[in-house]
Structures are given as C-alpha cells and as structure tokens.
Design a protein around this nucleic acid. Structure first.
Length: 599
RNA sequence: GGUCCCGUGGUGUAGUGGUCUAACACGCCUCCCUGUCAAGGAGGAGAUCGUCAGUUCAAAUCUGAUCGGGAUCGCCA
C-alpha cells in the first residue's frame, strides 16, 4: 500500500504517530520557508507542513508541488500551534509534519478548481467528468448512491428476495417509448432492443417460482431528455408472488423509510406515508403527483361561477368544462407586475388566461367585504355576493389572493397544479428538508387518446382491473380502475406499481381494448401469455426510479447530478464523444446501411 | 418537432453600436515571505468575444443561419 492512513482520519489522539498518506494536492500555501499543503483523498483533507529545519529535501521538493499532483507523504502527526487550529476541518486540530515526499504523478493545471463552490458549465463538467467527480460533493453523491443500493440489497435479501439479472439485449416492442436498438450480425436485418424495463421478464420469473425478485436494473428510452430524464436510467425493479397491493406497499415503504433514515441526517419524513386515491389527488391538487409539503388545495366553483355574469365562466361551464382555483394566502397585495407574471405563467402551462381576485386585508371579514376591498379584472362582471361566495367556498380571507382558471377539466388541472407548485415555491412553503411520500392508488387503467381515437394504457397493460370494474371492460373501459398505484414524493413520481394480470384470457381482453391485433399480441406477448397457461401465480410489483430517489435525498432537481457519467440534453456524452460513427467494416458486418437525413 | 434563456482569456462573470488596443475575480507563471488554511506582497503571461454570413463609415454589442449547453411543451406503455 502507498498509504497506511487516510487523510481525513487523524485526530488529536494520533499525535506522535508516524504515518504515510497519499492523495491529491488540494491547495498549496508557500510561505517561502514554511510550506503548507492540503492533501485530499476520498476521506477528506489533512494539512501537511514542510519545515526546512526539519526535513530539508522534502521541503525543497514541496516548493514545486502544484494542484492535483499525486503524492505520497510520510511524517509525524503533531498538534497544531494554539490558535492555529482550523475548526472547519475534521482534522483541524492536528497537522502532518512531513519528513518524506514522493511525487507519484504530476498533473496539468486543472480545467476548473476541484471545489464545491465552483459553478462550471455543464458541458465542461461532463467533458472533464473525471475531474468533476473529484469534488467533495460529487464524491459524497457517489457514496450516497452506493449506500442506497446497498440498503436495497440488504433489506430485500432479509425479506427473502432473490436478485436476478435480466438480459440487456431483448426483443423490441414498439409501443410506448422509442426503443434503443442493436443490429444483429448473426441474424442479418434483425435487431435487438435495449429494455425500457424488465417488465415481461420479471413476470416470467414469477411464473418460474422465484416468488420474490429484485434487480437494480438499467432501463433505456430513446426519447427527448429533461432535467429528470436521461436516455438510460436505473430503477429498483421488484416483483412478488401471492401478494396484494398492501403487501407490496409495505415492503417498499419500510425500505424507503430505512433508506431515508440511514442516508440522510437532515431530512425528515412523515410516517406512515400518506395515502390518497387518484381521484382524490386530482380533486385536491389537480395532479397525480402532488407536493404534499404544503396545502394550497384546489376548490371547484363551477356552479357558482357559471351563475355569474362573467362570460369566461359561462362559456367554460356551458361547454362541459370546469372552473377551479385556490387561495394564495397573504397575496392580496400583489401588484400589477406580480399578477401579470402569474398570468404569463398560467398561459405557459396552456391556460387561456388567469382570473385573480385580490382581497384587501383592511376588510375585517368576508361578510363585511366591500367593493373597495376587491381588485380583479373581472370585478365589473362579478357581483359582490358572487365574490363573497367564491371566498367562502375557497376559504379565502381578507388579504388573500384567489387564483381561478376556467376551461376543460384536464387543462384546468394542469394549469392549477403547475401554478400551485409555483406559488409553493414563491411563498417558500415547501421545506427543502422534508420528504413527503405518498401512495396514490386506484389509477384508471386506460386513457382515451383524442388524436388516435382509441384507449391507451394509463400506466401499462399488465395491471389488473379492480374486480368490481370487470363489467366495464366491454362497456366503458375509461371507467375501469386498476389495482395500480404510484409512489410520489415532493411532487415527483418516484415509482409505479400494480397487481399484474396472471390470466391469459383477461390479459388478451385488455390487449384487445387498446386495439392490438391477434398477430401483434402473439408477436410481442406470446411468450408471456403462454407462460400464464402453465401455472402463473398471482403477483405484483413495482419499478422505482433510483436516480430520482438519490436526487431527492441530496436536494438535487436534475438527475444528471447523481449519475456518474450522464449525457447532455441532446443525449451526447462529451467525454467519450458518443454516439459516433463506426467503421465501414463494422457496418458491413452488421448488414446496416446509413441513410443520412435530408438537410 | 415547437417555445424560451445562455455562449467573451483555463474557470466564473462585466461590457449590449465608436471611449474595447476588451474589464474584474479566481486560476496560471516568476520573484519575495516561518503559521497559513479562499494565505499575503510585487510583477507577468493569457481572449481574432462559439462559428458563418449580413447590416453599418464602425459589430463582443444589431440581423439571419448554424453549432453547442440549459429550461420547458410535445414525447416519455
């Protein structure tokens, strides 16, 4: 070993010890005769002092040291001079008085400082990711990520799960997201696909009798990127046999509680996780992934609004739409600029406009409300009584701002849930140190696709309908609720699960509802349906995003920050410069010809 | 595929028609310095302002295209 001690370890109790450390030169402070080096390794920093009177050769060499050089230093742990301690450093009460210095490797001047404060452009960071990952924050991220997966392995092993690796080269099933595909050399003209998730494979494992399976699985989707989406992401994939919804939830809830408690000292969470149905979540928050760290719940005022003289409300209600809103407490004093800004925000979410009604705080109560207390662009169309009724229904008080959107139910919900999150941020209602997990259950099985005029699976086709909704499968599929749920946290979807179908006939009926032909069913799902006829146990499970979990634990919004080697928004890797052209010979071997797009 | 923001020494920013022969901080190089820890002091090097085209007497600055990064809508069973 090049070292017997890690930089971050020595304490006052080690004073007098002769130690050897090795690491990177973090910083050099050259006082001429006295030279200080902060030496960094994975454990932290230690100050090394080179004293010419104590070790002349080492001191001479230390003068040539530069940032990020790799060195080995031997010396004695000494207590720092009184007053020279550094309280910001765990090793701050001691220093290493060097006797020997070996330069193991030099380094070019780094492209950016290896420090947490440095804000470097994303592209530069990725191009030099090997340097970026040296930053203490990134080192901590890698460790947290490891710890999370370690707890997953430990806990699920305790619970009788078996980890099984499923193949990366599988069959393409073109519905849903676009597949990444890999040409086959041995089968000219044929392609493998990279898995979007090991869904069918894990269900087959249930038929195989594994009963409890998990995998930290890489999943691939050839779709456009976002802050929370990468072309390849990692999910905790798990599946259990002979279970009901609550059994799966219990395992995941205990696992996630353990993960939060063991990886984060400052995050607080509410136990047990909140539960609400999809319908309830849409009603109260306008979204299926509500941020429960704050209230600002939505209210429906369609009826009252439709009876007013405001044409926006009349026409929305008349065409079967809805009128909903929420109260921004204490925002009744918002000026033109602020309300315009909120209107802009609402429009960017697709709204035609935003109706706001500001109530002056000088009113003593809603009952005593006078016209002078009200500011609203719709003031002349809304009677004082109507506004009082809005305030009562929505729970507004003097000094509050009512935000109201009219339109189709879907649009109103989208706009208001975005606006709700925005107000939560602006009013600083969302505590960064709180994790509000929630189970959102009873999702509908199908969505009606207006463009294609057909039903689409809301999550996926393998979820079982609620027994009491079986009758609607043929008559009104849109009404069918599935045994299908999401885990959400702070407004993000953390994972999705369901009790799966294990019956060939039922599964085939569902495929038919979403319009698959017999040939398509046989081609894409034949193996699964066949397996179901050989004794498939009832089973269910979840897929849970690992990147998002780690991101939320570390307070990051972009999952790029918690992936060692992520890609840019154009799915490019600036470090390896992938993707890249391949040799003609490779193309020939693969029986692939390139047709460039017309420019 | 759409919309919006950004691109200036190694890094992060300022400069938004002429005063730019491009400023500041950090970093880098040389020298000085025995208690610093974002060390300090003195001096120095380093940028055709992403690229191309246009407007103009004059472009880092205005216009268009293009490339790259980011946010977001579509998309993401």
């Amino acid at each position: 070993m090049y070292k017997d001690t890690n930089c971050g370890d020595p304490r006052e109790s080690n004073v007098g010890d002769q130690i050897t450390v090795a690491g990177w030169v973090h910083r050099r402070r050259d006082h001429g005769n006295l030279i200080f080096i902060d030496l960094r390794d994975r454990s932290g920093l230690v100050q090394v002092v080179f004293n010419p009177g104590y070790a002349e050769k080492a001191h001479d060499l230390a003068g040539s040291l530069r940032s990020e050089w790799v060195v080995q230093i031997t010396g004695k742990v000494v207590a720092r001079l009184p007053g020279a301690e550094n309280p910001d450093l765990p090793t701050g009460t001691i220093e290493l008085s060097a006797t020997d210095l070996v330069v193991l490797n030099r380094a070019l001047t780094p492209p950016f400082e290896v420090s947490d404060d440095a804000e470097i452009e994303a592209n530069t960071r990725l191009k030099y990711r090997f340097m970026d990952l040296r930053r203490p924050k990134m080192q901590a991220m890698l460790k947290t990520r490891h710890k999370v997966t370690h707890i997953m392995w430990d806990y699920l092993t305790e619970q009788g799960f078996t980890q099984v690796e499923t193949p990366i080269l599988i069959k393409s099933t073109p519905e849903g997201a676009r597949d990444y595909v890999v040409p086959s050399r041995v089968h000219p003209g044929d392609f493998y696909a990279l898995p979007q998730s090991p869904q069918q494979l894990k269900q087959l494992l249930m038929v195989s009798g594994v009963e409890r399976y998990f995998q930290i699985a890489r999943c691939f989707r050839d779709e456009d990127l976002r802050a929370d989406r990468q072309p390849e992401h990692t999910q905790l994939d798990l599946e259990m046999s002979f279970v009901h919804q609550d059994d799966v939830m219990a395992v995941v809830e205990e696992l996630y509680t353990r993960i939060v408690n063991e990886t984060s000292s400052h995050m607080t969470m509410t136990e047990p996780f909140t539960r609400l149905t999809y319908a309830e979540s849409m009603e109260r928050f306008g979204t299926d992934k509500p941020d429960l760290r704050f209230g600002l719940e939505l209210t429906t005022i369609t009826e009252t609004a439709a009876n007013s003289d405001a044409r926006v409300f009349q026409s929305a209600a008349g065409s079967g739409g809805s009128i909903r809103g929420f109260v921004a407490p204490g925002c009744g004093n918002y000026g033109r600029r602020q309300t315009d800004n909120l209107t802009e925000f609402a429009k960017s979410s697709g709204a035609q406009g935003l109706v706001f009604i500001a109530l002056d705080e000088s009113a003593t109560s809603i009952e005593e409300l006078e016209n002078d207390h009200i500011k609203s662009p719709l003031k002349k169309f809304l009677s004082l009584d109507t506004i009082k009724q809005f305030a009562t229904e929505m729970g507004a008080k003097p000094g509050d701002l009512m935000l109201i959107v009219a339109g189709t139910e879907k649009l109103v919900n989208t706009v208001l849930s975005n606006l709700r999150n925005e107000m939560g941020r602006r009013l600083e209602l969302a505590d960064d140190n709180r994790l509000e997990f929630a189970w959102v259950t009873d999702f509908p099985l199908f969505d009606w696709d207006e463009d294609l005029q057909k039903y689409e699976p809301a999550h996926h086709v393998f979820s079982t309908p609620k027994p009491e909704h079986m009758e609607y499968l043929d008559t009104d599929p849109g009404k069918v609720i599935g045994t299908l749920w999401d885990l959400v946290c702070n407004g993000s979807e953390m994972g999705s699960g369901s009790i799966r179908i294990h019956d060939k006939d039922l599964q085939t009926r569902l495929f038919n509802i979403i319009g698959y032909t017999e040939d398509q069913i046989a081609d894409r799902f034949g193996q699964l349906l066949t397996a179901f006829t050989y004794g498939a146990p009832p089973h269910g499970g979840m897929g849970l995003g690992l990147d998002r979990l780690v991101a939320i634990l570390l307070g990051e919004t972009a999952i790029r920050e918690v992936i060692a080697f992520p890609k840019t928004q154009s799915a490019f890797d600036p470090l390896f410069e992938a993707p890249s052209p391949i040799e003609d010979q490779q193309l020939e071997d693969l029986h692939v010809r390139i047709v460039m797009p017309k420019t």
